[in-house]
Nucleic acid binder design. Structure first.
Lengths: 235, 235
DNA sequence: GAGCTTATGTACGCTTTCGTACCGACATTC
DNA sequence: GAATGTCGGTACGAAAGCGTACATAAGCTC
C-alpha cells in the first residue's frame, strides 16, 4: 500500500475509527485510481469490493423499466460504497459508476467482513451511515416528486461540490438527465438558466461553480435537509 | 401478555427467530390494538416503542416543505416499525401513522436494545429487513418519478392488500393523495378508472379489491420488483 | 484543416398533473 | 327528518415536463 502524504485527502468514515481499528482497516485496503465512467457494480451482480473514496465520487443509480434510471445516492469521501455487504446482502440492487475520477481505498468483500467482525467502531459508524443513506434516498423520492428540474439540478451540483473538493468537475447533460430522471433537453434548459444568472458556467461537460450562495438559493430545501441529516449523525 | 390462539396472525420477522430468541422477544412485548389514524411517531421525535404488526399496518410518511408529504414505506406483518433504533439512531425522520387498524406486538426501545444484544437472529433478520426497506424506498423514488398516478395507486392497493389479509380495507382519497404525493382529485380520477373497470369498488373510504389480477395488470412493475426483493431476502 | 463525434441550445405539439373550485351523495347527530 | 360535516366525482385553465427533432459548436483524429 502506498503511503499517503500528510494532509492528503482522507475518507471520513475511516477517519472516525480509533487508531488501532483504522490501521487494521488501512492494512487491508489498496489505493485505487478510479476513472470517470468506470462501472463498479451492476444490478443483480455480486459486490466483490467495497470503496472508501478519498477524492473520487461514486453514483449509485436505480434502473427502471429497462430504459429509465434515477440516482439514489451519491458517495464521496464522506461515505462508502458497499453498504449491502454490511447488511448481510452480497448482491447490488443498483448500478454504481464512478462519476468524478480520483482515488479511493478499496477492500475485498472478504476483508470487509473480517473488519466488521473485529471492529466495533466500524460496525457502529456504518450503522449510522446506513441511516444517513436511507434518509437521503427518501429525500431523493420527495425531491423527484415535488421539485422543479432546476432546483433539483442545483441540489445535485451542491452535493457534488461538497463531495469533490473543487469548484470544477465533469459531467454531461446526458448523464445528469439519467441521474435526475428527466430529459437531456430538460437539463440543458435548467443549466442554461443557472448559467444566465452566472451561478455556474458550463462547457462541454465541464461545470464550474461560480456562485455557491446563488446555487444554494436556487436549490430546494432538500439540500439543506440532507446536509443536516449528515451533520447530525456523522458530523 | 395475552396468549395468541393457534393459527392467529403472526409477525413474519418474529416468526423467523429461533425458538429461544422468539420467546425472549415475546416475553418483552405487549399486544396492542392500534386504531386507524393513530400517530406512532413524528419527525424529530424520539422513538420510544417498536412495533411488530400482526394484523395492523403502519405507514411512514416523509413531510416536505411544511405542507406536502410522501409515503416512504409501508409496514405490515411482514416487517417492523423502529429500524432507526437498530441503526443506533433514536429519533424518527418521518411521521408514522396507523393505516389499517389491528393488532401489533409492541416493545419499549430499552427492551429492543436488550434484545439486539442477546439475539443474533434478530440482528441478522433486521439487517436484511433494513436492506429490503432501503430497496423499497428507492422503488418509491423511481415510481414517483416515472409512473402515472393510476399505476401508482394500483401498486399501493396491491401492497396493502398483501399486508392486511382482507379484500376490504379503509382509506380515503385524501389520505391516499398524501401518501402518493398527488392531488386528492388525481386520486379520485385514478380510482374512478379502476372502479369503471371493476377492479376495485370504492365507497366512502372503504375499498374492496374485486379483481386481484386486474389490479396487478394496472400496476407498474414496481410492485413486482418490490415483492421480488422481499422474497429474495426475507422469503 | 477536413471530417467525424460529442455536447449543447432550442423548438414544437402533446400528455399529465396541478391548483382550485363546485356539487351531489352519504353518514352522523340532534 | 333536518342540519352538518365528510367524501368523492368532475371541471377548468395553467404549468411543467415529455418525446422528438434539428442546428450549432466544440473537441478529436487523421
Amino acid at each position: 500500500m502506498r503511503k499517503e502524504k500528510p494532509g492528503a485527502p482522507t475518507n471520513r468514515i475511516i477517519a472516525t475509527l480509533p487508531t488501532t481499528e483504522r490501521n487494521d482497516l488501512r492494512r487491508r485496503c489498496k489505493l485505487a485510481e478510479l476513472e470517470p465512467g468506470e462501472v463498479i457494480a451492476e444490478p443483480g451482480q455480486q459486490i466483490r469490493q467495497v470503496y472508501f473514496p478519498t477524492s473520487a465520487s461514486i453514483s449509485t443509480i436505480a434502473m427502471v423499466d429497462g430504459q429509465n434510471s434515477l440516482e439514489v445516492s451519491l458517495v464521496g469521501r464522506e461515505g462508502m460504497y458497499g453498504i449491502p455487504l454490511a447488511l448481510g446482502v452480497s448482491v447490488s440492487s443498483w448500478r454504481a459508476t464512478v462519476l468524478c475520477g480520483g482515488s479511493a481505498l478499496r477492500m475485498s468483500a472478504e476483508d470487509f467482513h473480517t473488519m466488521l467482525n473485529i471492529s466495533p467502531g466500524l460496525r457502529r459508524v456504518l450503522q449510522r451511515y446506513t441511516h444517513v443513506i436511507v434518509s437521503q434516498i427518501a429525500q431523493v423520492a420527495v425531491c423527484a416528486c415535488y421539485h422543479l428540474v432546476e432546483s433539483r439540478l442545483a441540489r445535485w451540483m451542491l452535493m457534488t461540490h461538497d463531495r469533490v473538493s473543487s469548484d470544477t468537475f465533469h459531467v454531461t447533460h446526458e448523464l445528469l438527465a439519467e441521474m435526475l430522471g428527466v430529459r437531456r433537453a430538460g437539463v440543458s434548459t435548467a443549466a442554461g438558466s443557472l448559467q444566465t444568472r452566472e451561478v455556474i458556467s458550463y462547457t462541454r461537460g465541464k461545470v464550474t461553480v461560480l456562485d455557491r450562495k446563488g446555487l444554494e438559493a436556487a436549490a430546494c430545501d432538500c439540500y439543506a435537509a440532507s446536509e443536516k441529516v449528515y451533520a447530525s449523525f456523522l458530523g
